[in-house]
Amino acid sequence: MAAHSDDPLQHPEVQQASVFGYTAGFLATLALLGAALLLTEGHLMPPEQLLGGISGLALIALLAQCFLSFGLDITSHNIWKSVSLILTVPLFILTIGLTVWMFQQLDALTMIPGASVMPGMTMQPTLLQ
């Protein structure tokens, strides 16, 4: 590890705090989520596209937070955080994406169409004697 002066306040991770960055991150996230809210409440897109639209806005908000709030970059004190995050992102996609896909296929193959309104789906399981 590179030597730093003994004052902890001079550490690069303390010094990387920036009013501009945090304000920009705050406002950007607020604005993007507000836009997503408007899109949804105002039904400004057809439903199938709407989900894609708000997902896209969420993604941009998260990216904005990465750069502006978390301050992730490739400087020596942040690079490992950035690398580990980038390597972890595919795992989110795999966990959620493959699960949802798998269950869509499963439902299509095993669930009777219209099963959601069947009366039998409201029973409590009882204790086996």
Binding site: T99, M102, F103, L106, M121, T122, M123, Q124, P125
Partner: peptide, 13 residues
């Protein structure tokens, strides 16, 4: 749970 909107396979998954 087997019923009440549970999904058994979710646990396995």
């Amino acid at each position: 749970t087997a019923g009440m909107g549970g999904n058994l396979m979710l646990y396995t998954n």
